[in-house]
Design a protein around this nucleic acid. Sequence first.
RNA 1: GCCGGUGUAGCUCAGUGGUAGAGCAACUGAUUCGUAAUCAGUAGGUCGUCGGUUCAAAUCCGAUCACCGGCUCCA
Length: 611
Amino acid sequence: MPVASTAAESASRRESTATTPLHLPKTSESPELLRIRHSMSHVLAMAVQTLFPRAQVTIGPWTESGFYYDFDHPEPFTEADLKAIQKEMGKIIGRRLPLQRLEVSREEAERRITAQGEPYKLEILAGLIEPITLYTLGESWWDLCAGPHVAHTGELNAKAFALESVAGAYWRGDETKAQLQRIYGTAWETPEQLAEHQRRKAEALRRDHRRLGTDLELFSIEDEAGAGLVFWHPRGARMRLLIEDFWRQAHFAAGYELLYTPHVADLSLWKTSGHLDFYKESMFGPMQVDERQFQLKPMNCPFHVLTYASRLRSYRELPIRWAELGTVYRYERPGVMHGLMRVRGFTQDDAHIFCLPEQISAEILGVLNLTETILSSFDFNRYEIHLSTRPAKSIGEDAVWELATAGLIEALDRKGWAYKVDEGGGAFYGPKIDIKIEDAIGRLWQCSTIQLDFNLPERFDLHYVAADGTRPRPIMIHRAIFGSLERFFGIMVENYAGDFPFWLAPEQIRLLPVTDAVLPVAETLLSQFRAAGIRAELDRSSERLGKLIRQGEQQKIPLLAVIGAAEAEAGTLNLRSRRDGDLGAVAVAALLAAAETANRDRSAGLALEPA
RNA sequence: GCCGGUGUAGCUCAGUGGUAGAGCAACUGAUUCGUAAUCAGUAGGUCGUCGGUUCAAAUCCGAUCACCGGCUCCA
């Protein structure tokens, strides 16, 4: 497993997400669970073949939280089938059937499989190297398997497993091959672990950004406009603006300049870049304009490259760091879109660095630092780093690859981040670093990527004037920190479960008048808050306070400020914080100052003294 | 694109061939109330879309679009 690296653990990790009552080991961390889940998939297969004799078995490996098994079966399995299968599995477990390892010759295995009429198993056998082992489960059922397994099904806990879903899957993951039915299950050592697993699944559902996006009125995707195209509603747009403002500020501070480039451009640009050869199936079709063909951009790089090439560059100008929040459009096949996570139009926080070979290490380190600055501001403090090196099929000289890869490694070492090396996993045009972030419930998301590119400078004939008057090619670095603003936004919504830190909340404070009598005072306060750059609203409905509180809490507003006769008289507000509960009376001036400070410092909450 | 499932009011859902329903939200009125739901009323849907079967379709059939769970792919 990759080494997880922890950058300054933030104290501001939200309380609802920081503690997990019960540790749930992954399969790869627990030899016991490995045996349980391995055996469980055999129990599943046996149960299915008992109930559905026509089902043919294929493969059934463990996953990090359970197991699955792929079957070829003419009729689709239904939810009711799943229940029946689960019941049958319970019976098998109850019979305490032994699992026995048997080493057989290839001929023997072939003979046994042929007798059963299991074509997929035969195909699996062909790919196996000796020794060929199989495991029997009870008297008559067996499957090809390397193990390990529990000694008998009595070691499986019938109350600690559940079948979860059935889905389509291709044989060998190849979409040209047969479509099979995959049954997913989860299995644990104890019922308590199963319950915790199911609690976490429910938690993930509660955090679903599509759900929260609708409930909190952040964004929508409209059928009429088309799949995978995002509409940012006022509340989502406010947040996006805050994110972008922060992003720009951080980039200027890190020595970047910002660009704006067109959304469409002459198709020939994509011929030069090579995208038309390698990326065509991901691009929207070209459009005819006058005598020329134009292309909606799937990437920003050629535009930045053209900007670089617009005049002669000196080595003294390098490194050049150009960033752009560039919206790109990519054709995604129907059926793959998913909320904000997978869309057809999205905004990359793209940047390109043009530098000298000897600047690579320092530039990469700069990118790593900026990445940490930005990601940690959204409470993403745990990263998993992957370094991908030269693949077999690649362009560029050995010396450049070596220099570049060494530069990446040096930067990672100087940053002190552990990483996993993916040998030969780089792009054909250069090595790369990918950064996955871990969210509040332990899920990993790939966002940031840093790629060296030896290809585009070549294709667009980029160069700079060196000290000796020669014109070498610059090194080009592509990097994105959020990756896709839309996708990052979705991940962030799930990370916070919609409970955004104060600085990011679309509505930071809502004024709740106890009676209409204090409305005029509340209106004045509202203006005051807004003038101070605080995102405040006033609830003017004549509902009772309890209702106003309830609605404010449901909309996850960080601060609810109750104003009644007493407060109006005293020039205070009675504050209720979403994170910390009732804060009591607070002077208006103190609240204003604290809120302004929190906005400036991008704080999760206010530093307040009770009045 | 593939396998399976689902599309009924802004949201959550009920309604299996015979005149479209509930709760919440919205709006109006009354109420002026102190930390998670005051009461009453009003309005809102050609049941995703198109086509077919039928005297009659939300309901049956076909196509199509979108969404959901996966596969493949991927930021």
